[in-house]
Design a protein around this nucleic acid. Structure first.
Length: 697
DNA sequence: GAGCACTGC
């Protein structure tokens, strides 16, 4: 432990922290900042220290380590708090927690008076929550100047920029413990990065001394292809001409038991080749990697506020990401990084830093959260972000919140909005719960919200090989044809009737992890709703299967109110839909949907959707049938919407055209690039470069 | 008739 670089800087750190409200600490991987900073400050008598982490596993493992170093029992002086799990006590002085949990705590106590020190760790990852916390901290140190210290720690964060943001606060640089990594570039732009990766990996395997290879690809598809090609080629090598090789795929949708294979040591005289997504960039650290092959691409989800659509695009990585990937080769000894692109491309085309999540997400939830804090000195549109989201994105959030009654026409939070903010859900679902509470279907709405919180984990997990097998399983409920929300509800109720039987999930092709998660979420939501619930929250089933013939009118009505910002109207003569409000988008029901058509083959006239996704064709995912008479009041509300008033008059530029709920001519094309919006256009440019390259093939 | 990177309250 004594060898950690940070230890030599203790005096300097303590002095700086004592003399300044905010300190930025730049410490590379291996500097020991995550485990040591909190202990140093604890030794100097700071009474209670919070350390945020962007990931749950990190909060748990780092706190465990610190408890061990201090020789105390986890949960006593040192503890952690993550969703569903609080291992702290009255004695806890050093508390590791996810940034989301700290945000929740600040809802109950906006001044966070429990803590004398708050450390935002891994700030360079720029998670949505960390960014919001940075904005809040800036204001909090003013309010609590006498008794709060804030530390922002990061690996590669641009120290000057952050220092400037925090009124020129001091920046301390702590060296890391990484070994040197030699970076090698391709001479040419790759025509096909899969082939280039294959060739490079074989080359390393045949010519280079021992050491594992880590290859960064973009997704499951690429990974599976590359793994099988590598296996073929390695098998074809002459016996004894080089050491053995064993090849592992590594990505998020891999079952956990296959993921952990990369942590067990390889057999002797055998090289491991790990083909991974971004998961290996930060979340999982594979020991023994000496060679990194970097495709230069990443798959990233982004939100476009002008079309209100998500897309999942393959884009060029940033320089920061490229260097993070390279660093993965130097954790145990000097390594090499092979970049499958020329250095000129790295220097001229790659963005310096990754576009932060706050500029790639829908902000309805975050804006509602900030509104609910009731900070008198904060105007949402002028909230001080390290990197501000576009005004378009903030306007989009305000419009959405207005349509679901979370804020009034002047942009002030309503009493409904206040209750919504307490629920760890997207605003449309929290609004649905509020309405369901009045319609006597809260227990069903809780289940729907919990099931939707798990998203894809619920769907039958099928790998490539299983895909061809025609699903023999699946006598799962079908949502009575009313849509996916109802189907999810029925599935959960079925599971409930089996007493949460794990085997039942497996038999029906449901992912056990996802179902258990839904159960946890439902429990948590019930606890929060308990205070205001008008009837029991426990699941009610009559046990005779009769409930599956019901029409779920009240629940669908509640969904219609909750999803007032996510409504679509079927086009006259076919099954395409146009979204209602702002800029109508032409979209289709996702083919996996449980929604059924009538005897004429027509879908219902109106549906609500959980999300729009361009893949690249625009689809509504998770839809539910609603009735026209429920929709009319929403259309009326849409027509009275005034963005200028919503933003409290603080909007810099106002659209000249009044908002129309139903455009005269539907827009056929999705607008992707928004000239005024820097982050969107930068993302788009990165994407176009990728597509241009792809076209070269 | 499509296909999904990674987190998190």
């Amino acid at each position: 432990m004594a060898t950690l670089p940070i230890v030599q800087y203790e005096e300097k750190i303590i002095q700086t922290v004592q003399n300044n409200p905010i300190t930025v600490i730049i410490g590379e991987t291996g500097s020991g900042k995550s485990t040591q900073l909190s202990q140093m400050l604890h030794r100097r008598g700071y009474s209670k220290i919070a350390v945020t982490q962007p990931r749950r596993v990190a909060a748990v493992s780092v706190s465990r380590r610190v408890a061990q170093e201090l020789g105390v029992q986890l949960g006593e002086e040192v503890g952690y708090a993550i969703r569903f799990e609080d291992r702290t006590s009255r004695n806890t002085r050093i508390k590791y927690l996810t940034d989301g949990v700290l945000l929740r705590e600040s809802l109950a106590d906006p001044e966070l008076n429990d803590y004398s020190v708050i450390i935002l760790d891994e700030a360079h990852e720029r998670s949505l929550n960390t960014d919001i916390l940075m904005g809040l901290m800036k204001r909090l140190v003013k309010l609590r100047s006498s008794n709060l210290k804030v530390l922002i720690t990061s690996a590669t964060l641009d120290g000057d920029k952050v220092s400037k943001f925090f009124r020129d606060c001091p920046v301390l640089n702590i060296p890391g413990k990484l070994y040197p990594v030699e970076v090698l570039y391709s001479k040419e732009r790759p025509l096909n990065y899969l082939e280039a990766a294959l060739k490079t990996a074989l080359d390393i395997h045949v010519r280079q001394p021992e050491g594992d290879i880590l290859i960064f690809m973009t997704g499951q598809d690429d990974i599976e292809k590359l793994v099988s090609k590598l296996e073929d080629k390695v098998r074809a090598l002459d016996e004894g001409s080089c050491m053995d090789a064993i090849i592992f795929p590594l990505h998020g949708s891999l079952p956990p038991e296959l993921q952990v294979r990369v942590f067990s040591p390889p057999p002797p005289n055998c090289r491991r080749i790990i083909v991974a997504t971004n998961i290996a960039e930060t979340s999982l650290t594979v020991d023994g990697v000496v060679y990194v092959i970097d495709s230069g691409y990443v798959k990233q989800r982004q939100y476009n506020p002008s079309s209100r659509m998500y897309s999942l695009d393959v884009i060029q990585i940033s320089k920061v990401q490229a260097n993070q990937r390279a660093g993965r080769a130097g954790r145990t000894r000097p390594g090499k990084c092979y970049r499958l692109y020329p250095s000129q491309m790295y220097h001229d085309e790659f963005l310096d830093v990754t576009v932060p999540e706050i500029q790639r997400s829908s902000l309805a939830g975050s804006v509602l959260y900030l509104k609910s804090l009731d900070l008198p000195d904060i105007d949402i549109l002028k909230f001080d972000f390290l990197d501000s989201p576009s005004s378009e994105s903030l306007q989009d959030a305000l419009k959405q919140l207005y349509l679901i009654d979370a804020i009034d026409e002047n942009g002030a939070i309503t009493s409904i909005g206040r209750k919504m903010a307490e629920l760890p859900l997207e605003p449309s679902l929290s609004r649905t719960l509020m309405e369901a509470n009045d319609y006597g279907c809260i227990t069903e709405a809780l289940t729907v919200a919990a099931m939707l919180s798990t998203e894809t984990t619920l769907l039958p997990g099928q790998s490539k090989t299983e895909k061809k097998r025609k699903r023999p399983i699946s006598n799962l409920p079908d949502g009575s044809g009313l849509g996916d929300h109802i189907k999810l509800l029925q599935i959960y109720e079925h599971w409930y009737q089996t007493d949460f039987d794990i085997a039942w999930c497996k038999d029906h092709g449901l992912q056990v992890r996802g179902m258990l998660f839904a159960r946890d979420v439902r429990k948590q939501l019930s606890q929060i709703m308990q205070k205001i619930a008008k009837e029991p929250l426990d699941i009610r089933t009559n046990g005779r299967g009769g409930e599956f013939r019901r029409d779920y009118r009240n629940l669908r009505k509640a969904l219609c109110v909750g999803y007032a910002n996510q409504l679509a109207e079927r086009k006259m003569h076919h099954n395409g839909y146009r979204t209602l409000g702002f800029q109508g988008q032409v979209v289709q029901v996702h083919p996996s949907s449980a929604l059924s058509s009538d005897e004429l083959g027509k879908f219902p006239d109106y549906v609500v959707y959980h999300e729009l996704i361009a893949t690249p064709r625009p689809f509504m995912r998770n839809v539910c049938s609603v009735e026209m008479k429920w929709v009319i009041p929403i259309i009326n509300k849409l027509n009275t919407l005034n963005v200028y008033k919503l933003s409290g008059g603080g909007m810099d530029h106002v659209e000249e055209e009044p908002e129309k709920s139903i455009p005269d001519l539907p827009k056929q094309n999705v607008e992707v690039a928004v000239a005024a919006d820097d982050s969107q256009s930068r993302i788009q440019a990165a994407r176009e470069r990728f597509l241009a390259r792809k076209g070269n093939k």
